[in-house]
Amino acid sequence: MQKIKKMINNMNLQKVRFIIQLFSFILFVYGGYFAIDLGSKLPIFACPYNGEAAGACYLIPLQHQLSMPAQILLGGAGIAVITGLLGFLFWFIFLNKAWCGYVCPFGTLQDWLTYLRKRMGIRYSTYSQNQFDKLSKIKYIFLVIVILFPLLMGVGLLGGEWSAAFCQMCPARIISPALSGDFSQWTIDFSSKTAMVLTALGMLFAGLFFAGSFVKKRFFCFFCPMSALHYIFSKFSIVQLRKEGSKCTRCGDCYAVCDMQIKDIADNVTDVNILRDDCILCLKCVAACPEDDALHFDILKFRAFSSTKEGFEKRMGIGRPKGIDDEH
């Protein structure tokens, strides 16, 4: 047991993560070729506009259900919304935000763009703390769009062209099908003014997606309404990221490796639950932490992956410790 634990704590996280991401990318972009269907309640951007995805993003059924005419929605059909949410939660509780960091094909795509940039020797960009605080709220605006627009459609204030308004704007609708060779979404729909504006925004966001995620790690995740939806329920998940503030030396390694630039991970030494709304649970911070058990990834109360001095040194390629830790 102790041995297995040591092995896990010493693992090469990047390699493990790459393999999992590759596997789930194939599954959620090309899974249809293997006749896999995991339903339409997935907490990731597995876009159903891509006919070959092995499952669909939950935001699609959510928007469709909420856009039912109000009298149908309130007259019992609203139960479908609740069961849909339960289906979403069923998936969600097992991985929490690790869905973003490990499974979401759209996130994986951004990671690969980052690898590409690194190969090309171009440096990356960051936000200032001020920008971060402001931009971080955008995903909640998107979440409001996901929920509010269909409801307005249902009561008749918005017309049918607003159906799945967020999807019209979502870059995943444009990019995901393209990955399986379907470019039919790369259009601007001029059938009505609303459709024109929404699809033009979609194209714009797709362009920004490529430009942004090339220079900024996980550029889109920052604005993702799914991430906002995750955060609302993240407390109910069986997996959590926890921090023991007393063991933290505030060296800042965790913040430096964080793709999402979450400052709390280094600064906050009081909260045990250190999972923040932007977090994608990639666990890089745990891997980069040189203190024993300061950060740990828990499944229920079991510490599945903890930061250890030994693991840190192994990952950093430093030899056996020679009093090096005292000097720090």
Partner: peptide, 28 residues
């Protein structure tokens, strides 16, 4: 039904995404 080519434009879409990439690239 109406043909999607009658109201959907690939050209404008590609123009828009190219412009976005270009402008964003220049700004960065």
């Amino acid at each position: 039904y109406p043909n999607s080519n009658d109201y959907q434009s690939y050209g404008y879409a590609l123009l828009l995404i190219t412009l976005t990439l270009l402008i964003a690239g220049i700004i960065i």
